[in-house]
Design a protein around this nucleic acid. Structure first.
Length: 654
RNA sequence: GCCGACGUAGCUCAGCUGGUAGAGCACUUCACUCGUAAUGAAGGGGUCCGGGGUUCGAGUCCCCGCGUCGGCUCCA
């Protein structure tokens, strides 16, 4: 058969030729460097005969092939890890190991009474290194199901047995599973789809990183296995660089930055709820103000609704049945009450308390509502996952033919918001979940409406089957934190159900009652989470308008304090967040402390400035940018704040 | 909630195999009055997360609880 190389050359190979043959035919250097071969986009082991048919586009993967090549040796490393564990921990049962972004993992069931922690890693790594040095070939073998089952039953590897049984059970009727592939390296045989590099020695550098728990089959009703995470690279240098990147990301952890900047803290007297220090509260309030102002310009109106409601409200909305375990419930004079975990039922109730004409629609209600959710203890994570938070929450009540325009408006609003911070986001459309309320017909209409809104704006998105809210499908907007974890920011959810349950109505042009549609939306998600994301995104260096402290005045000597005070007072009167550092310390010291706090502007004032009514401007990172008249500085910073400028570089130059 | 690790001064952390606590920074006071990333000295500050237990004696060992961290499950 004739194959096509990436450079356009053609390569003719006899039937039955392997990837190794292909590499050798191209050149001896490539034959040595080859790790695997890609045929029409599918990667194969070098030792396997090349598939025939298809277009025959082939590409030899080598160490220089990037992520695809790394995936191979990370998968290899997972096998070597399991091999070492079987040798070092008799009785261990292995389940699943796989390459993932930036590394690999393997899930194991350790014998009773045996635990694994990071102190055990050096010994395991040493054993892994022996197997890598031994340059064990990975040998693939396709064996009948019965043979594989016998093998793993005999070895007491019940997880592998279950995996094989499920492979057979879940195979489509027209393509039954009769054989499974096994990969052997050294004495270790693993059930595995492959592909692998030719030998273990291709793993040039690796490291075990952490140990964690993971449910078998991802099912919280099943056994918790021990998961070990690790990574592998083609050189020690690349591995070291990767570890350094992780360390830098840890420096940008919002919890660390929040502490360092004096913005917020947590206490065990209220787990999952932040205490906001004045600096952090200022940031919080700036964001609330931003959503209020942007909403006002887009036809939103502000509402306020209660914190605690009788359980009947939650029964009407359906939350009581689905989320009762996740609400803070309390009793009050024999009434069961619950703290609101979301604003929608309150807003629906509010809507129902006044008559509405079709002329009033869409009604865009906004409330920075305070919410409490009883999140399981193990899920809390700094500001990113909390029990008490405030959402920039809106509910749009509209007619069915207004849906598309409203959804488009919400998405546009979202992008306008994120642009202020240069945040890169991605969209996901989540469709009907198994546990839901409402008829399939309503769901069909809702999902179609969201899809056409996305299509209308020409946006790219992925689909999350079954991940919708229990009352309607949603478009979610996600972002990634400093360690690559994904967090949801915004959401736009379409809901026919809540209006139904609350019996909402408006009077149409025909003077008859009609049911409105409800669109739930939040753009920052929660202010807490958004601040966490922003801190990591900006490495703690928030734009001036958002900075906890915008200006600090640094008198050189005590005799400049009164000038400093007058400067501070003038700026404070303009709502600029400003402090005066009148400690009896050296300027050097005051500057250092201000730099550590990442204060965007430092105003150094001494005899010269005092005499001329100027300020010596120092910008965070940029350093001394020269003296300007105080008026001039105040005018410029006010401008930066008023326009919510993203950057202030050169702010004090002409 | 589940698995594992961790919890010592406001913060970051040290404290070997059990012998009743230490550093740096921060804070207070004093001296210094300083020109762009740490002036010096002195001082105050701890229910060693909480509760039980073992022991002559527990920060240290064991058990339970709480919290935090890394994951898993969940996330209206």
């Amino acid at each position: 058969m004739e194959y096509l190389l990436p450079n356009g050359d053609r390569l003719s190979l006899p039937d039955g030729a392997t990837g190794a043959d292909a590499a050798a035919a191209i050149g001896p250097g490539l034959a040595r460097a080859a790790l695997a071969i890609k045929v029409d986009g599918v990667t194969y082991d070098l030792a396997r005969p090349l598939p025939t048919g298809g277009e025959g586009r082939i590409e030899i993967l080598t160490e220089r092939s990037g992520e695809e090549a790394l995936e191979l040796i990370r998968h290899d490393a997972a096998h070597v890890f399991a091999e070492a564990m079987l040798e070092l921990y008799p009785g261990v049962q292995i389940s699943i190991g796989a390459p993932i972004e930036n590394g690999f993992y393997y899930d194991l069931d350790l014998p009773d009474g045996v635990t694994l922690n990071e102190e055990d890693f050096p010994a395991i790594e040493a054993r892994m290194r022996e197997h890598i040095e031994a340059d064990e070939p990975f040998v693939r073998e396709d064996v009948p199901v019965a043979v594989a089952l016998d093998r793993y039953r005999g070895a007491g590897q019940s997880y592998k047995v279950e995996l094989i049984e499920d492979l057979v059970k879940n195979a489509p009727a027209d393509a039954p599973v009769e054989t499974v592939s096994l990969y052997t390296n050294g004495d270790f045989v693993d059930l595995c789809r492959g592909p692998h590099a030719p030998t273990t020695k291709r793993i040039r550098a690796f490291k075990l990183q952490s140990v964690a728990g993971a449910y078998w089959r991802g099912d919280s009703n099943r056994k918790m296995l021990t998961r070990v995470y690790g990574t592998a690279f083609f050189s020690q240098r690349e591995l070291d660089e990767h570890l350094e990147r992780l360390e830098r990301a840890r420096q940008n952890d919002h919890r660390r930055l929040g502490q360092q900047l004096g913005m917020f803290a947590f206490s065990e007297v209220s787990p999952g709820a932040a205490f906001w220090f004045p600096g952090g509260a200022a940031v919080f309030n700036e964001l609330v103000r931003l959503s209020r102002e942007m909403g006002r310009d887009r036809g939103y109106v502000e509402a306020k609704t209660p914190q605690v409601y009788d359980s009947s409200l939650w029964k009407t909305s359906g939350h009581w049945d689905k989320y009762d375990a996740n609400m803070f419930v309390t009793e009050y004079e024999e009434q069961q009450m619950a703290l609101k975990p979301m604003n929608c039922p309150g807003h629906a109730k509010l809507f129902s308390m006044q008559p509405h004409s079709y002329r009033d629609l869409p009604l865009r209600l906004w409330e920075p509502g305070l919410l409490h959710r009883r999140e399981p203890s193990g899920t809390l994570h700094g500001l990113l996952r909390v029990r008490h938070f405030a959402q920039d929450d809106s509910h749009i009540f509209c007619t069915e033919d207004q849906i598309q325009e409203e959804v488009a408006g919400v998405l546009q609003f979202a992008f306008d918001t994120y642009r202020l911070f240069e945040l890169d986001v991605r969209l996901e459309l989540s469709t009907r979940p198994e546990q839901r309320i409402g008829s399939d017909e309503l769901w069909d209409r809702s999902e179609a409406a969201l899809e056409s809104a996305l299509a209308g704006l020409g946006l790219e998105y992925t689909i999350n089957e079954g991940d919708g809210a229990f009352y309607g499908p949603k478009i979610d907007i996600h972002m990634t934190d400093s360690l690559g974890r994904s967090w949801q920011l915004g959401t736009c959810q379409l809901d026919y159900n809540m209006p139904e349950r609350f019996g909402l109505a408006y009077t149409g042009a025909d003077n008859a009652e009609h049911r409105p549609v409800m669109i739930h939306r939040a753009l920052m998600g929660s202010y807490e989470r958004f601040i966490g994301i922003l801190l990591e995104h900006f490495g703690g260096e928030l734009p001036v308008w958002l900075a906890p402290l915008q200006v600090i005045v640094l008198p050189i000597a005590d005799r400049h304090n009164s000038y400093g005070r007058s400067l501070r007072d003038r700026m404070a009167a303009l709502d600029i967040r400003v402090e005066l550092d009148d400690r009896t310390e050296s300027v050097g010291r005051k500057i250092r402390d201000a730099e550590v706090r990442k204060v965007p502007f430092m105003l150094v004032i001494g005899d010269r400035e005092q005499a001329s009514g100027e300020v010596g401007v120092r910008e965070h990172r940029a350093g001394d940018v020269g003296a300007v008249p105080a008026e001039e500085f105040i005018r410029r910073i006010s401008e930066l704040i008023a326009t919510r400028a993203l950057r202030h570089d050169r702010a004090s130059e002409g």
